[in-house]
Amino acid sequence: MTSVRIMRTRDWADPVPPARRELLTATPEIADEGKPPVLFVPGFGHGAWAYAEHWLEHAAARGFAAHAVSPRGHGASAPAPKATLRAYAHDVVQEAARLPRQAVLVGHGAGALVVAHALARYPAKAGVLAAPVFGGWGTLGLALRRNLFGTLPAAFGGRLRLGRRQLFGRELPDAQARGYAKRVGHASAKAQWELLRARPPEHPVGDPPVLVVGTPDDRVVPRTALDKVARRYGGAPLLFPGMGHDLMLDARWQEPIDAILDWLEKDGN
């Protein structure tokens, strides 16, 4: 792994405080040194558990050492009611740097924006942005139109509430969907506000390949947003019709993760 050291004045003058982080890991039975480790990053309110349901073990079964981190304030990581997007990105970079080889960073939802910021600080093997929420006031407008009563509290620093219709497709059984939805928490109020006025991420270090995946039926991320993010990284989104926003938990969860791993074996490795 090539060492790349990036020093920013703010990181030196105002360092992110340390925090205890949850990391879940699935190890392949037969290690394949030709396949890079994969670090999954959940979106706001989710934790590493969202990947432990299906994607972690599936990636390991295909020979990838798979890890999922819960940024501070998420999952079983330490509470962080005042965390910022910079702190979340810091957590991702710190866990990636602990891995023995260059990792692939995979972010979902607002976690894709966190990964995009991490890619500007960590020389990843590749990046994957799943159903990316890159923020902006247009994101708030869409959320208010589609989920008024769940979104309005977040506009005033409260909790963003996403239900079954926002997160999952019709094929996922209602009981399972409700169970997942109950596990979704929330990011810090500061991070939520930062998401609304999010600045574009810096260019990735080392120019790694970046794949954007999503669904045209996403009720959180419109198709135009998927296209915009994909164009930013020089490509087009890989789409999975009929699925909901939470690709890793929906009924057809295997389709996107297989496509991601196929891409890593072919183009991202």
Rank of each mutant, 00 (worst) to 15 (best):
V184W: 04
D218V: 03
R219V: 04
F156V: 02
A187Q: 02
D207T: 11
G206I: 03
L160W: 12
V220I: 15
P209A: 05
W137E: 15
R164A: 10
G135C: 14
P201V: 12
E202F: 01
D217E: 10
A181Y: 05
G158C: 08
G157V: 11
S188N: 04
L195D: 07
P204Q: 05
W193H: 15
V205H: 11
L172M: 14
L162T: 08
A187H: 01
R164H: 05
K228S: 13
L226M: 13
A181K: 07
L144N: 07
W193F: 12
D174G: 12
G169S: 04
H203S: 06
L226V: 02
D218R: 01
Y180S: 10
A225F: 00
P201T: 10
V184I: 13
P204C: 03
D174S: 12
A191N: 01
D217T: 14
F168R: 06
L142Q: 06
L144Y: 04
A154W: 07
N147I: 08
D174N: 13
L162I: 15
G158D: 06
R146G: 14
V220F: 10
G169L: 00
K228E: 14
L140H: 04
R197Y: 04
D218L: 01
L195A: 01
L226C: 03
R161W: 09
A154V: 06
P209Y: 05
P200V: 03
G158H: 01
P208F: 08
A155P: 02
L144I: 12
H186R: 11
L226S: 02
W137Y: 15
P201R: 03
P209I: 00
V205R: 00
V205F: 00
D218K: 05
W137F: 15
P209K: 01
P209W: 04
R165P: 00
E194V: 12
P208W: 04
Y180C: 11
V210N: 00
P200W: 10
V213N: 06
K182P: 03
L162W: 07
L144P: 04
G150M: 07
G169N: 05
T215S: 15
D227S: 03
W193G: 10
Q176E: 09
R165K: 09
L148N: 12
P173Q: 11
F134E: 00
Q176W: 10
W137H: 14
R165T: 05
P216I: 13
R170F: 11
G136K: 07
A154I: 02
L152K: 02
G179W: 11
G138H: 03
A155C: 14
P173R: 15
L160R: 05
L152G: 08
L211E: 02
A175W: 04
L148H: 14
H186A: 14
K182N: 15
V220E: 13
G141A: 15
H203V: 13
W137C: 14
G179P: 15
P208Y: 01
S188M: 07
A155E: 06
G135E: 04
V205C: 13
G141T: 12
P153A: 12
G185K: 02
K190T: 13
K182I: 08
A198I: 14
P216K: 11
G158A: 05
V210D: 06
Q192C: 08
H203L: 11
G136C: 15
P153G: 09
R146P: 00
F156Q: 00
G158N: 11
R178G: 07
V212W: 00
Q166A: 10
V210I: 14
G185N: 04
G179K: 09
V205S: 01
T151F: 01
G206W: 08
L144T: 05
